[in-house]
């Protein structure tokens, strides 16, 4: 079974986000980068499927700057077989352009399955997985928390409001991973050493002009200071009044 996992390198969730002077993107200075956490579920699932099948190949596909090779290396240390880095300037790229570039490489690879994170934690677009499926004309199941593969067929459980939806589709297909799908493994020390010898193919790609342009970004307003209503039992009626009449939360 040949599986392609789409991986994005994103700022660490513990990073304090700052805007760059243009106000249209994030300031990358001093930001530590990690593998998008939802993509880690996708990697883990691909590795588990390969292990269960006893054969196959897990290919990591990334689009980004040359530094993104570090993220691929992490996935290879977890156990993926090889990586492909599509080097492109993503400063003005939109989800369509990125999905087009990824899907044309996927088409050449002709895998049985494509796994993506359900979204990247930086721009929260959640578009790339479904767009790849659309461009390839393959079925797509998003936000998957359980995945079973039988010959030529996929059974996936996905989270919906208040419950679980069970879907079936044919292979090849695109699946996007949600938290709960599995528990991603640590990169073992032997895995780190083995990853040194694994191939990362780098290709320059030119992205098509964006159809969507970011006009501005802004940070959320700081929280205003709290207000002391009083203390002890005496303060309760006033607190209840404020919650009911001013905040209108009860």
């Amino acid at each position: 079974m040949k599986i392609v996992v789409c991986l994005k390198q994103v700022p660490d969730s513990e990073t304090r986000v700052k805007l760059d002077p243009t106000g249209k993107s994030l300031d990358s200075a001093g930001v530590s980068l990690v593998v998008n956490p939802y993509d880690e579920y996708a990697i883990e699932e691909a590795l588990k499927l390969k292990e269960a099948a006893g054969a196959g190949e897990v290919i990591i596909l990334t689009l980004g700057a040359s530094g993104a090779a570090t993220a691929i290396r992490n996935a290879l240390a977890m156990g993926a077989d090889r990586g492909i880095l599509l080097k492109a300037d993503t400063a003005n790229a939109d989800a369509r352009a990125i999905s087009e570039a990824l899907s044309s490489t996927i088409k050449e690879l002709s895998p049985d399955l494509v796994l993506c994170g359900k979204q990247a934690i930086d721009d929260d677009g959640a578009q790339v997985g479904p767009r790849i499926a659309e461009l390839l004309g393959w079925p797509c199941v998003t936000v998957v928390t359980k995945l079973e593969i039988s010959p030529g067929k996929v059974r996936a459980e996905r989270e919906i409001e208040g419950g679980i939806e069970v879907c079936e589709c044919a292979l090849p297909a695109v699946i996007t991973a949600q938290k709960g799908l599995n528990e991603p493994r640590y990169a073992s020390l032997k895995g780190i050493m083995a990853a040194k010898k694994k191939e990362i193919l780098e290709q320059d790609v030119t992205l098509s002009a964006p159809g969507l342009v970011t006009s501005s970004m802004s940070l959320p307003a700081g929280r205003s200071a709290g207000r002391m209503v009083g203390s002890g039992k005496e303060a309760v009626p006033e607190l209840v009044r404020i919650l009911r009449e001013e905040a209108r939360v009860i």
Binding site: S13, V31, A71, R73, K179, I192
Partner: peptide
């Protein structure tokens, strides 16, 4: 949630002699 940090938690660049490994 598991994350694979590539750099110091503080975001400070690593010391020069540290390789990717």
């Amino acid at each position: 949630m598991a994350t694979h940090t590539q750099d110091d938690v503080t975001g400070v660049p690593p010391m020069a002699e540290l390789s990717d490994i």
